[in-house]
Each structure stands twice: as structure tokens, then as C-alpha cells.
Write a protein that binds this DNA or RNA. Structure first.
Length: 577
DNA sequence: AATAATTGCGCG
DNA sequence: AAAGCGCGCAATTATT
């Protein structure tokens, strides 16, 4: 079991922080979870007498609730245990033998329509309505911590779950820090791009010049000066009137038709999309003061990926990346993992053939070189189809070749799909499990099994079974990739903290969190990171980024020969291509 | 008038 | 050229 090699060198101590009325209660526990010390501290300095000098780890209800206050006072915390996130993992993990005590503690469930994260300024207010509803009472915090530790200890694989929980909590710290630091955003670069594409900023209520010109062209081609272009049903009717029998107005279907209206219409849709998603209003709201501050939501996706809330943080169009620009005297280190998910799959399945195809090169080219398919494009389609469960089209046709060449990797995802189709639960490498089948899903399956079931019942059941199979098929890979990425981030965060801060007199460390005076993570998106670093440290940072990727690979997969090559650039901006 | 669902498109 | 996973958001229409 490779994941067990990462045991803490010394037994950790824990420092719980909770809240009673207007005081923070800090409880120190030894490694056996026995109370060593309890003290009361002011809420606005609960971290004082902090623990950076010792090996203790903060335990708290919710990183969003506690950490922003410390960060706001320029105190960075190196390690924590987030009970809310831990609860969500342990409640569902198939590695936990008896989840009853954890599940019974429903007060630790995050209510869906009560966002776990809110806009940063409000987080500093203890009594603001952003309160998550998660307990802060010292007895309850201790009780939940003990429940979770017990669930892990009695699990089928405590080492893996401990890794997962530590990584999840490290991610929570980082999410808060990245929100505080922000991604350096060049307003002028963004504005000039908007002006080039859309025209000068219009007065409110008006369309930019280039957009209204395109709209006029489209209306002329439709022969209708008052045609509505923003209403899908009306646009569809207009298209039908000029002889375009489209069933939808999405771009690829429109592209199928040969008509003078198509090109300007597609251009119009592109521009209005840019305008409404990342136009001047977005710039004013999300990238004021030279920083884009996404609200990251660790664990926000069932698979363990991060979600985001506000600003479309994870959907920044590629061509806008050039507006990400380092401060004077600083650089960006931009790195992403090439073909993360198929590499993860190769390692999970111990598929030596797939790992060999991936080694030291583009994985898709490796598959072509092995003679499995004829072109890189085919390899890509086949691999994506294998991981997503494609059954038709080019992708579906190519999957069988992959199944012959890489039976272990394909066996793993096929098994995950079969489990899901039968209503079962699948788990990632470190033990995050998929949600169980819903009662609605079970009802559909049960109805189809009855003697008087109709053919329609059976068709519906088969379809929903396959839908669920595609979800579980992808869950194991996407979720384990998210774990790898968390391990990468956590190790990199620790490495960057060891770099020296810039000399305040010499450079431009503006105002901002204390950790942002040295190289720090500024952006994360599934398999990509951006580090903002003093120029003098950029090469060192690049090495740390690579070493952290290697460390993540070894932490998860031990000696299995899989590599995770990075596309890495040191630059002043984060432009793609 | 407020809320829900639909459509389309940006990202991995 | 295209149909298969996971998201968030804006604009519009449909529902209450």
C-alpha cells in the first residue's frame, strides 16, 4: 500500500478552536486526543500564542469561518483540519466501516442552499448571516473531531483517508489564501481587448458599436429589421423563415448550414457572450484594484474537484488570459499537467502498457507509437471516450482498440461503470466515494423489474442505469485526479512558504496578505496552477512546481512508474497559445 | 412579482 | 467533425 508511506514523523498535536459567546476557546489535545490545555482568547486574536513553532495542527469547524480573520491580521497558518470537509468525506466513504455516528451528526451537514462560502468582507463578521450553520461550540467541535478520528481509525485504510483529509484541509487553507491574494489582473489589457473586439465601452443600455453592426448584418440577412437575436425561440423561428431548418441555435448546429446569416450570427453570439460574461461589468465587479478574486469552493464537486462561486472563476476564456499580468518586478509561473486523467488511470490500474505510452512524452503520441490507433486526434478521442463512456460516434468506435491494448486500465473504468449501473458505490484512490443511488433512481429500476412493467419502463431503467454508469466510470478517474492535484498544491504551498519574502524596501509587495510578499499560488484550475513570484525566485519556483508534481505522484502511487510531465512557462502574462 | 426551468457556452 | 464526464453563469421563457 503505497499511500501509507507518508506517516507523520512525530505524533501530531491538535489545537481545537471554537467559540463561546464573544470568546474563542482553544483546546490543546495530545496525539491520543486527550485534553492537555484549555484557554480562552479574544475572538479577534484567537491565533495568538500560535502554533507555527510547534507541530500542532489547528482543528476548526470551517476554514471559511476561522481563517479569514487570521489572514486579515497577516497571520498565515500552515496546517489545519477542517471538520466540515472531513465530515462530508467520511459520511460517504466506503472505506469507513461504520459511518453511523458521523451520519447521525447531521448538524455538520452543509445545507445546500446555504452557501458555505460568501463574499470575503462579510467573512470577518462573526454574526453576519454568512454563518454556515456548522457548530462552533467547543464540546461539539471536540465530539465531531473524535467521531471523525474514530471513523478513520476503524476504516479499511486509515492511511489513505488521513492523506485525503489532510489534502482536503490544505486545499481549504489555500482556497482562502488565493482569494485573499487574488490573481494579478491588468485592467488596461482587458479593456483594450474588449475595445478591439467589441468597440468602445458604450453607455449603459447601449450595445457596443461592433456588436450592433453585426446585429444589423444578421437582421439584414434574415430580412427582418426587428428580428430578436437574443431569444432562442424567436431566433429559431426567424431562421426557419429564411429556410434554415435548424432544431437548435447552438453554434455547431448553425455551422452545419450554408447561408449568409450563419457567419455573422455566430460572430454575434461570440461577442455578446464575451460582453455579458467578461465585459466591462465583470471587470468592475470582479477585477477591481488589479486583482481577480475568485471564490473557490473546495470539495464543491461530488468528485472532489473544486467548484467556484461568483465571477465565473473557473470559466475565464482562454483569450482573456493575457490580462493576467505579473506585478512589476514579479513573474508568473504557469504550469499545467499534460493529460492528467489518463495518467491517473494508468497508475490506478497499474497498467504498465499505458504508463509506458505516457512516459516522457505526450500520452496520445505514445498511443499512436504503440500502433493502437492511427493519429493523435484518434488517440485523444478514444481516451476521452473511454473515460467518459462514449458508445457511439467516432469515439465509441475507437474505444474497443483501446480495450485490447490496455485491458487493465479499461478494466478499471469498465468495472466502475458496471458498479454504477447496478446502483453501487465507487471510490477514488484515497477513498472519496460516490453518492449512493437516489431513491428516484432505485424506483425506476424497481419499476422495470416488475412483471407488469412496460417496454417504456425497461427502456427508461436501462437509460438511467447507463447514465449512472457513465458517472461512476468518470468519478474514479476525475476524483483521483483531483486528489493528485490537491497533493501537488499542498506540497507546493509548503515549499513556497520556505522561500524568503521580498525586501519590502526594494520591491513592490503592495498591500496584501503576508504570504503574498513571497512567491505564492494565485490560481488553480483542476490541473493547472499560476504562481505569482518575485522575478528573482522564478526559476526556484519552477523547480519547486516540478518537484511538487513528482512528490504528489510518489505520495499517491509510490513506486509505480508513472510520470506527470508539466507544461511550464515563466512569463509576465498567462496568455495561452 | 418572484422562482424555476431551459438554452447556450465558457472552463477542465 | 462530434456526444460522452464534471461544473457556473447569463438571458430568456415558463410557472406559480
Amino acid at each position: 500500500m503505497t499511500a501509507s508511506s507518508a506517516e507523520a514523523p512525530s505524533p501530531p498535536r491538535w489545537r481545537l478552536v471554537a467559540k463561546v459567546e464573544s470568546h474563542a476557546i482553544v483546546t490543546t489535545l495530545n496525539a491520543d486526543l486527550e485534553v492537555e490545555h484549555v484557554e480562552s482568547r479574544p475572538l479577534d486574536s484567537w491565533w495568538h500564542g500560535g502554533i507555527d513553532g510547534d507541530d500542532a495542527r489547528w482543528v476548526w469547524s470551517d476554514t471559511n469561518r476561522w481563517y479569514p480573520r487570521a489572514l486579515g491580521a497577516e497571520v498565515a497558518i500552515s496546517r489545519c483540519y477542517d471538520l466540515r470537509l472531513g465530515h462530508a468525506i467520511l459520511r460517504d466513504s466506503a472505506l469507513v466501516r461504520d459511518a453511523t455516528p458521523v451520519r447521525a451528526a447531521t448538524q455538520w451537514e452543509t445545507v445546500a442552499d446555504e452557501p458555505a462560502v460568501a463574499a470575503a468582507p462579510a467573512l470577518f463578521e462573526w454574526d453576519a448571516p454568512v454563518a454556515t450553520g456548522i457548530p462552533d461550540d467547543p464540546d461539539e467541535v471536540l465530539a465531531e473531531f473524535v467521531r471523525q478520528k474514530q471513523a478513520v481509525r476503524a476504516s479499511t485504510d486509515p492511511a489513505r483517508l488521513r492523506l485525503l483529509l489532510a489534502a482536503e484541509s490544505a486545499g481549504a487553507l489555500l482556497a482562502t489564501e488565493m482569494n485573499a491574494a487574488g490573481l494579478p489582473w491588468d485592467r488596461a489589457a482587458h479593456e483594450s481587448l474588449l475595445e478591439d473586439l467589441l468597440g468602445p465601452r458604450p453607455t449603459p443600455g447601449e450595445l457596443p458599436a461592433k456588436v450592433s453592426a453585426l446585429a444589423a448584418t444578421v437582421r439584414e440577412a434574415l430580412g427582418d429589421a426587428s428580428a430578436s437575436l437574443d431569444s432562442q425561440p424567436k431566433l429559431l423561428r426567424s431562421l426557419h423563415r429564411v429556410g434554415i431548418p435548424a432544431e437548435s441555435t447552438n453554434r455547431w448546429e448553425l455551422g452545419e448550414y450554408d447561408h449568409p446569416v450563419i457567419a455573422p450570427l455566430i460572430a454575434y453570439k461570440k461577442l455578446t457572450r464575451l460582453m455579458s460574461a467578461n465585459g466591462w461589468a465583470w471587470l468592475d465587479e470582479w477585477a477591481a484594484n488589479g486583482r481577480f478574486r475568485p471564490v473557490y469552493v473546495p470539495g464543491g464537486v461530488v468528485t472532489g474537484r473544486w467548484a467556484s462561486s461568483g465571477g465565473g472563476a473557473l470559466q475565464i476564456p482562454r483569450h482573456l488570459r493575457r490580462a493576467v499580468r505579473a506585478d512589476p518586478g514579479w513573474r508568473l509561473v504557469v504550469a499545467d499537467v499534460a493529460q492528467l486523467e489518463p495518467r491517473i488511470l494508468a497508475a490506478m490500474a497499474s497498467d504498465e502498457a499505458l504508463a509506458a505510452a505516457a512516459r516522457d512524452r505526450d500520452l496520445y503520441e505514445g498511443i499512436v507509437a504503440s500502433g493502437v490507433v492511427n493519429s493523435r486526434q484518434e488517440a485523444k478521442i478514444a481516451v476521452l471516450g473511454a473515460m467518459y463512456g462514449a458508445t457511439t460516434g467516432d469515439s465509441g468506435r475507437l474505444v474497443p482498440a483501446l480495450r485490447r491494448a490496455y485491458p487493465r486500465a479499461m478494466g478499471l473504468v469498465d468495472a466502475a461503470a458496471a458498479t454504477g449501473e447496478q446502483g453501487g458505490v465507487v471510490s477514488t484512490w484515497l477513498g472519496r466515494s460516490s453518492p449512493g443511488a437516489s431513491t428516484g433512481w432505485r424506483d425506476v429500476q424497481a419499476a422495470a423489474a416488475l412483471p407488469d412493467a412496460t417496454e417504456a419502463d425497461r427502456t427508461r431503467a436501462r437509460r438511467s442505469a447507463r447514465d449512472r454508469g457513465r458517472f461512476t466510470r468518470n468519478f474514479v478517474v476525475q476524483g483521483t485526479a483531483a486528489e493528485w492535484a490537491l497533493a501537488w498544491l499542498a506540497d507546493l504551498r509548503r515549499r513556497l512558504a520556505s522561500l524568503p519574502p521580498v525586501d519590502e524596501a526594494a520591491s513592490a509587495p503592495r498591500s496584501g496578505p503576508v504570504f503574498a510578499r513571497r512567491a505564492h499560488l494565485a490560481f488553480f484550475l483542476h490541473d493547472e496552477i499560476i504562481v505569482h513570484t518575485p522575478a528573482a525566485h522564478a526559476d526556484a519556483v519552477a523547480n519547486h512546481v516540478r518537484q511538487a508534481a513528482d512528490a504528489a505522484a510518489r505520495l499517491l502511487f509510490g513506486d509505480f512508474a508513472i510520470d506527470f510531465p508539466l507544461d511550464l512557462r515563466i512569463a509576465d502574462d498567462a496568455a495561452k497559445d
